[in-house]
């Protein structure tokens, strides 16, 4: 009985705070994406001749996001039934855009105008721990071009 109540309390806390955090994060991502729109970002390997400058540098941004209790619970339920795990989709979307934004911030700090050959890597850093609540790491990296 006590366990059931504890689970319910954790679910409510996870849902309320998780949703607030997610909404706030998405708002901030959208705002910062609009601010950094001028920094061009491509995943093409070939930098066009007319843009080329001798000053290039590697930039990267990474983020680790944790799942809240509510999402985790929904995802484990979903795991029994199969199908799209929408709780994790929004988590990963957030993580990925945040990583790219951090990479862009680094590029902007160095005075770059464009980033090329952008790659994104995801890894989960909770594997093997049965009780542990999951966390994902996303890393974005690319070559920033600084005009001289």
């Amino acid at each position: 009985m006590f366990e059931l109540i504890l689970t319910l309390v954790l679910l409510v806390i996870g849902f309320v705070f998780g949703q607030i955090a997610e909404k706030r994060h998405f708002r901030s991502i959208i705002q910062r994406e609009a601010e950094t729109r001028d920094l061009l970002c491509f995943n093409e390997r070939r930098i066009p001749q007319d843009m080329f400058s001798p000053h290039v540098t590697l930039v990267c941004g990474s983020v680790v996001v944790s799942v809240d209790f509510f999402k985790h619970f929904v995802a484990t339920l979903r795991n029994l039934v199969g199908g799209r795990v929408s709780a994790y989709e929004s988590l990963l979307e957030r993580a990925r855009r945040e990583a790219v934004l951090r990479m862009k911030a680094q590029a902007l700090a160095q005075g770059a105008t464009s980033v090329w050959n952008v790659r994104v890597e995801t890894s989960s850093i909770h594997q093997g721990q049965r009780q542990g609540i999951g966390a994902v790491e996303v890393m974005a990296y690319g070559t920033a071009l600084v005009p001289r």
Partner: peptide, 18 residues
């Protein structure tokens, strides 16, 4: 990239079904 499902609805359907 995000499925347009309300998390609470998803939760209720899953919990009930399972």
């Amino acid at each position: 990239n995000v499925s347009p499902v309300h998390p609470l609805k998803d939760f209720a359907v899953l919990l009930f079904g399972v």
